[in-house]
């Protein structure tokens, strides 16, 4: 299943790479730098997938004390942080030529940074607490409160009326090629995120059981 998923992700990623480079036209005002938008938006959605997995896994762990739920939470948090880092890196690279600054305290940027800090603290706590049970409980509490921060990120633009561009409601603003490229890149990046969550989950489960040599574990 994982091999098939990996194969699918590679094919879609290659197609999206081709579309970004050759199919999607450069934006009239922003030029070629706008192409970073496809990776930026897709990574932001993947970040939500990761943090949502972390929050749901943590909630299930607290309610059922199931170790698999904790493994899902840690996998989601780590993958979420990776994609959040990509968002926070590609954002300034895109913003510098357009807004003239690397960073601005725009509500959505700020909220994304908050979310990144919360889940980085989640990872730090997991490494700092020695007692496994206490580590799972405290990190679950962090992830649940972190999950509650995600709606603040999502609605930050509407709440605080920032200057961040929004794709929603501007359907005619982009040509069809751009939409096709965007949806293809989203599929590839979200597919990659779910694959990484699955692999990290399996590694965590093996770490808990101490069985790294079990048959059927791909790439172990």
């Amino acid at each position: 299943m994982i091999r098939l998923w990996t194969f699918g992700v590679v094919i879609v990623a290659m197609a999206s790479g081709y579309c970004i480079l050759y199919v999607a036209p450069p934006e009239a005002m922003q030029g070629y730098v706008q192409k970073i938008f496809y990776i930026h938006i897709s990574s932001a959605l993947s970040m939500y997938v990761g943090f949502l997995s972390a929050g749901v896994g943590s909630l299930l762990y607290l309610l059922r004390r199931a170790e698999w739920a904790d493994a899902l939470a840690v996998a989601g948090a780590e993958v979420g942080v990776v994609f959040c880092t990509i968002v926070l890196t590609t954002g300034p690279i895109w913003a510098r030529p357009i807004w003239g600054v690397w960073w601005t305290w725009d509500p959505r940027l700020t909220s994304t940074l908050f979310c990144w800090l919360i889940f980085v603290s989640y990872i730090l706590v997991r490494h700092a607490l020695e007692n496994p049970e206490r580590r799972r409980l405290v990190s679950a509490a962090v992830a649940i409160i972190g999950l509650l921060d995600i709606p603040i990120i999502h609605f930050a633009v509407k709440l605080w009326r920032g200057a961040h561009p929004s794709v929603k409601g501007t359907k005619d603003a982009m040509p069809m090629e751009m939409y096709t490229t965007l949806y293809l890149t989203m599929t590839a990046v979200i597919g990659l995120a779910t694959l990484l969550i699955r692999l990290r989950y399996l590694i965590e489960r093996r770490r808990e059981t101490g069985n790294f040599l079990q048959e059927g574990m791909p790439y172990a």
């Binding site: 908050f114 980085v120 603290s121 700092a128 206490r134 405290v138 509490a141 962090v142 972190g146």
Partner: peptide, 23 residues
């Protein structure tokens, strides 16, 4: 309550509280 009796609790509590309390 989560970090009590932990060796590095002083900085752990700050690491936990400040990011979550940023809003």
């Amino acid at each position: 309550a989560g970090v009590v009796m932990q060796t590095r609790r002083e900085y752990l509590l700050a690491i936990l509280c400040y990011p979550l309390a940023i809003p």
